[in-house]
Design a protein around this nucleic acid. Structure first.
Lengths: 219, 219
DNA sequence: TAGATTGTTAATCGATTAACAATC
DNA sequence: TAGATTGTTAATCGATTAACAATC
């Protein structure tokens, strides 16, 4: 059995990591793996892995374990890698440019269809992304483009002053997800779209905390 | 009372968010706030906020709540913003460059002291970062520089093929933390240093999962 | 077949929420 | 003073781990 029944965020956050490990194993030519072996290499218990996977179905075989290639594909499917997701990048500054040129969107099932910017210096520039070329368009065209092409995700790499309005624009135009790189908590009606944020600052501050030796204070 | 007694990662991960909200309130001129008001704005319970803060001390006042400026400072202190942390960036490609030019390290208590790269095209280039200028050095100098300057954190924005060796180099030279931007799980002896990773791919895949309408499957 | 390993149910552990005396 | 709100202890909820029958 399994499936549906609200999968916890803890499980969702582990899925990409499973996929990463399974991809590595697959590349190394490993064909089968048990939950205990996988758990050992990932620093999880075998129980947790079986429990996690059981949210989505039965992928193993008693006495054998899991077929690496099959399980990898199942996890890919669960995460929606084969759904033909599309994206647009809004804001072609340093970071937007870096993502467009270096981040392998297609490995994760996303095709970046277009990039937008406000600056006349940037609009019209040709960007090489994931083996394709694409010419940056002015932000005025976001709405019509997203509607016509039925884009699934808007990547927000604009200055934070205009992040919320950019999000509004994208959501109105019909994206189902926002991938937010600004240091801002975007407000989006949850029945319309999901926001996933990459908060660099939160990450650095967590690191800052962790490297600070909190002195033992035994009373 | 409170303090020490192993603070859970859940709490640690919320600290930067508290800081973000408190900074906003402070900027808006709000001088005091109760746990219930803060909780409401952050989508947390008042209980949780009081419980979280009680890990570190007593910062409130019965009948009054918390002084925004004071609490903000306390949280900054807890996260180590005033410890004079330093960092070096290794890998001045698109992403490293974007971080150096745009990410406000000093807002989070970090001074970026140097950047390193392998490419002769990049070495020697002058980078503007946080109001300072700095000339990219060859990676050969990482070890001696980090040792001499007692750098706290190494930022890894190199290609993933050389990420682990870069981490080894930095840790040997004595950094206490690695801020990892590669899609790789770096292995570092935990008594020597902490690794904090910004996994773009994990984030995008989680988003991919969340925008996929898992069909209700009532058996 | 015997050994290994699954999926699932039950037990444990930890984190969140509720309740409330203390007190500003 | 009365009202508000804290810090903390107890109760609840959810997530992780353990155990085990089913079975390849």
């Amino acid at each position: 059995m399994g499936r549906s029944n609200k999968v916890s965020t803890a499980v969702i956050r582990r899925l990409p990591r499973y996929y990463r490990y399974l991809t590595d194993l697959h590349k190394k030519g490993v064909t089968r793996i048990s939950s205990s072996a996988l758990g050992k290499s990932m620093g999880l218990t075998a129980s947790q892995i079986r429990q996690d996977l059981s949210c989505f179905g039965e992928f193993g075989q008693q006495g054998y374990g899991y077929n690496v290639a099959t399980l990898r594909e199942e996890v890919a499917e669960i995460m929606g890698i084969h759904r033909g997701n599309t994206a647009v990048v809004v804001g072609v500054g340093n970071l937007g440019h870096a993502l467009l040129e270096n981040f392998p969107f297609q490995l994760y099932g996303f095709q970046v269809k277009m990039a937008f910017d406000v600056s006349p210096d940037v609009v019209g520039r040709v960007i090489h992304t994931n083996g394709c070329e694409l010419m940056v368009r002015p932000v005025e065209q976001i709405s019509s483009y997203v509607k016509e092409e039925q884009i699934s995700v808007g990547v927000i790499t604009v200055p934070k002053q205009v992040a919320q309005e950019t999000a509004n624009l994208l959501v109105e135009a019909g994206v189902s997800g926002i991938w937010n790189f600004t240091n801002l908590e975007l407000v989006v009606p949850e029945q319309l779209a999901v926001v996933e944020s990459v908060h660099f600052s939160d990450s650095l501050l967590a690191l800052s905390y962790m490297i600070n030796p909190r002195e033992e204070e035994d009373s």
